[in-house]
Structure formats: structure tokens, C-alpha cells
Nucleic acid binder design. Structure first.
Lengths: 223, 223
DNA sequence: GTCTATAGGCTGATAGAC
DNA sequence: GTCTATCAGCCTATAGAC
């Protein structure tokens, strides 16, 4: 219970932050429709009327969370994309940055983004769209550069972007649930850590799109 | 409006199928909590009381849809996994089968599975768990075999499974929405088709985990 | 089997006291 | 800024007519 020094009452900013923190976790877990304002307020330890006072309603709170979370993700991609390093290294950096974002800085970013896209992205307004574009341009851009410089095979940048982002978003969005589900289902496997996954996916992606001679025959779609 | 030959009234089976079809699409798009029984009934063209009569409530209808959808996916994986073909070919077949399932037979399978895992898989009961296990064992099993036979690098089967399934589930679960969103956002890219994606992902996966000499240096996590 | 009518609970939002 | 009290609307489920 953070208290202001002068008023001896709970700071407004502390209330807002508490609400945002609680709502972020609940929205990521249950979706906008699966969360009641009552449950958000209870988890935050404040009155539910304050959601309307500070944010103007449940939906506006959701949109604000989506916007700030995507802004943070975009900021990190922008920091990396114009690097002078090799395309391989930049791609590795993207994966490492995603890992850090999804495990430390914004652990609910993957689930929030995924849920929003699943439902049709109806909240992708003028404030959010640039962030989505930034993410896309970052990954697809470095792949395009790698293809141009001849270090990557001529893969389609957008498809490669989707494959990479798909793996990452799926893994981190489902990671906390999967651990519990896997143990309940008695999955016959030792659960690797998220760190193991980062190393694996960096390796597989780079082996997968790197230029150079291969012993594998051409790929085919059907048997 | 399918009618029975003798009763001259709408067949019960037609009603059930119509409800299942409508509910499947709505659940995949909006999630269990985002769909009202009223909207399901309206889309199906029947009365909402019939949802309780035929299925025993909205949640039971949802569980039934989840179960039959996962059963179908599992059935297809089981058909392929014990093939005598090479691990590379079986993996290609898995991807092709997923594509067929996600575009023709059960277009809502990826979104339904994804949403359920995101929310914690609370409906993974004794009837559903074997299907989940079947999917996992199919993909991880063929990778294990490939590693054992020396045609794949010694990747972790479970991590490889997650990376592959993640790409596929993400792509197909978001495909219909992404097309609309991309055009609204004026994404500076020609949208490739799902067929293009299949070819791309088969290629990248096999290049990514195939054994054999590589020109790429060792993978590292941080810059 | 299907429909109408309705019960009963929960939800999001707000007015007003402090 | 925060809380209590409350309302109107929507929700799921069901009883009962046909």
C-alpha cells in the first residue's frame, strides 16, 4: 500500500499503477470479456468505481494497457533495427530482446497481442497501428537486408517474419500455462526453460534461412 | 433450412449441427466469454433455449466443440506418425496435414486450441487430454526418430515441437483477421497465401534442423 | 423438438457522501 | 480521490405452451 508523503492517503498514481498491473494480468489471462471490473478492483485492492474515475471505463483501461505495452515493444525493436551489425546478429538480438521483454519487462505482452489479433484487432487505432508496423518492419527489414546481402536465402520477408514472430508469441504467451498443464497431464518430457528455447529458436531460425550449400533435397508440399 | 422428410419440421440433427457450426465460429473469434447464447442461436437461426435442450448449456457446447475438434486433429496426426517414410517426409506431411485441417476440414481448430491454452486449459479433461498428448507425441516423436537416425541435428524434441506448432497455430489462427487488418493498416507488402506459407515453413524447418555441414558459426544468445 | 415468457444473477457505470 | 449505494441492461437457464 504505497502512500503519499503529505496526504497520508493512497496516491492517485499508486492507485492507477495498481489497477494497470492487476488488469494487465487478468486481461492477458482471461481476455477483455472474461474479466469484470469488480475482479480488477479487488485484485488491485481498490474500489471498482476508481476504474471509471481514472480511465473512463473497462474498455479504455484495456486500450491504454494495449497501447503502452505495444509502444514498449516497438521502442525496443527500433533500437535494434538500424544496427550496423550483420543480419544474423540483428536477428539473434531480436529474439533475445523478445525474450527479455516477454520474461522481465512486459511478461503479458505476447498474450495481449495474440488475443487482440485473434479477436480482429478492433482496437488497432491511429495510436497503436504505428507500433504494429514498427514490429513488422523491424523483423522483415533485417531479413530483407540479409537476402540482399546474400547471407540469407531468398525467403519471403513477410512469411519469415510471421514464422519467427509466431514461434515466439506462441511460446511466451502459453509458457506459464503450459508448465502447469504439462505437469497435470504428466507429459513424458522434462520441461526445458525459456532460456533453452531462446538458444534453440535462434539456432533453428538461422540454420533455416542461412544461405549456403545444403545436403537436403528440395522441399515439397505433399507426400 | 434442412427439413426432415417425415416430420416436415426442422430435424433435431440439423439444429444441432447448425448450432455447432455457428458456435464454433463465434467461439474461435470472440472466445467463450465473448459470445452470448443469444448470438449463437441467432446465427444458427434457431431459438436460444435449444442450446440448453441439446447441449445442456453454453459451456457444455463449448467443451463438445473443443473435444471433437481436437479429436479430429489427433486422428490425422496418428495416421501419419507411424509411417515408414523418412523423418523429413513425415515432418513435411505433418505441416501439409495441419494446413489442410486449418484451411478446409476444421478452419477454427487453431484459434480454439490457442484460446484454450491461453486461458489455462481448464477444460482439458480425461476426454481431451489424450488428444493433446497425441499431437505432442506425433511431432516430437518423429523429430526424436530423425535425431536418432542422424538426419536431424540433436535438437530438443519438445522445443522443436513447440517452435513448429507455434508457427503453424499462430499463422492459421490469425490468418483471416490478419488479411483484413493488413489491408486496413496499409501494410507495405503483398500478402502471401497460406499455400506460400506451407512451402516456406516446410523449407525453413527442414533446413533449420537438418544434420549436415553448415557454413554458419555457432549460435549465441546475446550480442 | 421447438418456441415464448420470465426468473434471477451479474455486469458496467454513475450519483452522491465523505 | 475514494468509497457506498444503486440502477438499468444483459446474461444464462428454465418452466411451460404447443
Amino acid at each position: 500500500m504505497t502512500r503519499c508523503q503529505r496526504t497520508h492517503s493512497r496516491c492517485a498514481v499508486a492507485t492507477k499503477e495498481s489497477l494497470i498491473r492487476s488488469a494487465t494480468e487478468l486481461f492477458a489471462h482471461h481476455g477483455l470479456d472474461g474479466v469484470s471490473v469488480e475482479s480488477i478492483a479487488q485484485k488491485a485492492g481498490v474500489n471498482k468505481a476508481l476504474i471509471n474515475y481514472h480511465f473512463g471505463g473497462k474498455e479504455r483501461l484495456y486500450t491504454e494497457i494495449l497501447r503502452t505495452t505495444l509502444a514498449e515493444a516497438r521502442r525496443r525493436v527500433d533500437e535494434l533495427r538500424d544496427s550496423s551489425r550483420s543480419p544474423e546478429d540483428v536477428l539473434r538480438d531480436f529474439v533475445a530482446a523478445f525474450h527479455n521483454l516477454a520474461t522481465v519487462a512486459r511478461p503479458h505482452f505476447p498474450a495481449l497481442l495474440l488475443r487482440e489479433v485473434l479477436t480482429g484487432g478492433r482496437r488497432f487505432d491511429e495510436e497503436i497501428v504505428p507500433h504494429i508496423l514498427g514490429l513488422f518492419e523491424g523483423v522483415a527489414g533485417v531479413i530483407e537486408r540479409g537476402v540482399r546481402e546474400g547471407v540469407f536465402r531468398p525467403v519471403h520477408p513477410f512469411l519469415a517474419h510471421l514464422g519467427i514472430i509466431g514461434s515466439l508469441v506462441f511460446f511466451y504467451a502459453t509458457e506459464p500455462r503450459r508448465r502447469r498443464i504439462a505437469s497435470e497431464l504428466k507429459l513424458p518430457v522434462v520441461m526445458p526453460t525459456a532460456n533453452d528455447f531462446v538458444a534453440h529458436i535462434q539456432e533453428v531460425i538461422l540454420y533455416g534461412i542461412a544461405a549456403g550449400p545444403r545436403r537436403t533435397e528440395n522441399t515439397q508440399k505433399e507426400s
